[in-house]
């Protein structure tokens, strides 16, 4: 909330400054902002609906039972799969991950879950594809899945010291 007020105030200040310096440019800038919002609206609504669905389907108990600390490499795959599909607001990710570990999920698996959750966006694929094209979008998301594997491997290696 404070973040939002802060952001709105800064942007309003900048817009006012811009308006004061050059009305034409400011009008153009605002038009562009409006166009982006209108063009991305269907994709954005889809993302939000996806967030709602994933939060209500994947409860902490459900996920923990799938990726327990004995689930091994299979658990890492399941965790990355769920993480890629689900989409959660970032401030929910870590408290949720903490709850998962408390419920019996393994830290290595949870790490793969976190990494895919934040950087692989199945829900935002249509939007990303619209902006950057197919190849870029699929390759960026695949590389993020790869990063999740690398990261959970590192956590697996250092686990005894954590």
């Amino acid at each position: 909330m404070t973040q939002s007020i802060f952001l709105y105030s800064i942007i309003m200040l900048l817009t006012a400054l811009s308006w004061f310096k050059d009305r034409q440019k400011t009008k153009k800038a605002l038009m562009k902002a409006k166009n982006m919002l209108v063009k991305l609206a269907p994709e954005l609504l889809a993302i939000l609906l996806f967030v709602g669905l994933s939060l209500s389907i994947f409860t902490p108990e459900t996920i923990s039972s799938l990726i327990g600390d004995q689930s091994g490499v299979v658990g890492v795959f399941i965790a990355s799969f769920i993480g890629s599909f689900a989409m959660l607001p970032s401030f929910v990710v870590f408290p949720l991950a903490d709850t998962l570990v408390d419920n019996g999920a393994g830290l290595v698996q949870v790490s793969a879950f976190i990494a895919t959750l934040v950087s692989v966006g199945f829900a935002s694929l249509p939007m990303e594809r619209k902006i950057f094209g197919k190849e870029f979008t699929y390759m960026r998301n695949l590389s993020a899945v790869l990063m999740a594997f690398v990261f959970s491997f590192v956590i697996w290696v250092v686990l005894p010291w954590l």
């Binding site: 800064i10 811009s18 800038a29 939000l48």
Partner: peptide, 18 residues
């Protein structure tokens, strides 16, 4: 979304112009 996206889009518009 409405607490973050609209100002960010205006910022993008301003960057584009200035």
């Amino acid at each position: 979304m409405f607490s973050l996206l609209p100002p960010i889009l205006v910022l993008v518009g301003l960057i584009d112009q200035w």
